[in-house]
Simulated scan of single mutants.
Amino acid sequence: MNKFAEMHFFVAVVDAGSMSEAAKRLGTTKSMVSQRMQQLEQRLGVSLLARGRQMMVTEPGQIFYAHSARILAEVSEAENAVLAGQACMRGSLRIAAPMAFSIGHLAPMLARFASLHPELRIDVEADDRRVNLNDENYDLAIRLGTLQDSSLVAKRMAVNRHVICASPEYLAERGTPARPEDLQDHDGLLYVHREPHGMWQLPVDGEVRSFRIRNRMRTDSGHQLMAGARQGLGLAILPTFLCADAVASGALRIVLPEFAPSGGMVSAVYRQSHRASLKIQTLVNFLIEEIGYPPVWELPIQEQLQAVSSDRSEKTNF
């Protein structure tokens, strides 16, 4: 068995998280995969995998995986370069994406992408859970927020800006907070994945501080947060990709803009072994172009701000 084949088997095992799942993806048997791994370890003279109830990759295994994934990716990239002129986007592409971002923006973008590549089958799972690309058979995931250090390749596509907002009716009745300390006198709509303890983490003077706000509603749905805010239930922290139209129409107003928390980035992530994939690179480049800079969802807010500024200027000149 040649060394490239050994690398391919080993990378498949690490990516799949188990020999049985790797066997399914490789179209062979678990015993064959196990035999190949034993032969590889014997040839190298080190243990690459710690076998037990849960398979773990040893330190030498992590080093060998990183080099193997890079080498296989470079080989694939070389082949793609030769075939680029006649390459056709076909086969399947499995994508995991967050629900809220998919509904308003990603879904139509992926539909347009699919229409451009009729021989490509796209399988999209829209769910706010964070899938493990090494344990589940996804080609790519769209992630929101700050990414944790990992072996995955990450491509940043846009800033995920967040704002604090509320309905005009709520602010007229309860007043507009002038500083984060005022939040203790206000009702808050809490996102359970970000504020499990009922505290908002806001940037103040270059550091992040915690501020308590009354728990009016808790949810794991961004759309539920926005519906509650529009109904006048309280203050909410929302991504602009979700609330831009409501802010532009006046249904929601931004408060405490200088203390808005960071939402990180909108990123595409995929495994090292997929870094030379023509399908993935084509999709990522397409999404970056579709999103634009500034992001397309920010445009309604900018247009509204420009209109307000122009109106004020006309009144001043008059």
Rank of each mutant, 00 (worst) to 15 (best):
H193K: 11
V296H: 07
A50Y: 05
D135Q: 03
I71W: 13
R130S: 14
A78Y: 14
V269R: 10
A87G: 03
W297K: 12
E119G: 02
R51W: 01
F113H: 12
M56A: 13
G198R: 06
E195D: 14
P98R: 09
G228N: 07
R36D: 01
V266S: 08
A248L: 00
F241Y: 11
E136D: 09
Q306C: 10
N160M: 04
V159W: 09
N317G: 01
P261S: 12
D245G: 15
Q302G: 08
N80K: 01
A154S: 12
A87L: 07
K315G: 01
D139N: 13
E6Y: 11
V46I: 15
R129L: 04
C165W: 07
L49H: 05
L256R: 01
L252Y: 03
M89R: 05
A66V: 07
V13P: 01
H67I: 04
R179E: 10
V308G: 07
G188N: 08
A100L: 07
A172Q: 14
G188L: 05
S115L: 07
D135V: 00
V308M: 13
D311E: 12
A158H: 07
L287A: 10
R130C: 12
L83E: 00
A268G: 10
V247K: 02
L106E: 11
Y191A: 13
E6T: 02
Y270D: 05
G234N: 14
E258M: 05
E41G: 02
V14N: 08
R143C: 11
A141T: 09
L147W: 08
K24E: 12
I213F: 03
A248F: 01
L202D: 06
V153A: 05
L202H: 04
P239I: 12
E181A: 13
G188D: 06
G228M: 05
I95G: 07
S249F: 08
N285G: 13
S277H: 12
N317K: 09
L202V: 06
I164S: 03
I280M: 01
H186N: 08
V296D: 09
V57F: 02
V33I: 13
T316K: 15
A251I: 02
A81S: 15
T29K: 11
S150T: 11
I71Y: 14
L140W: 04
H274P: 01
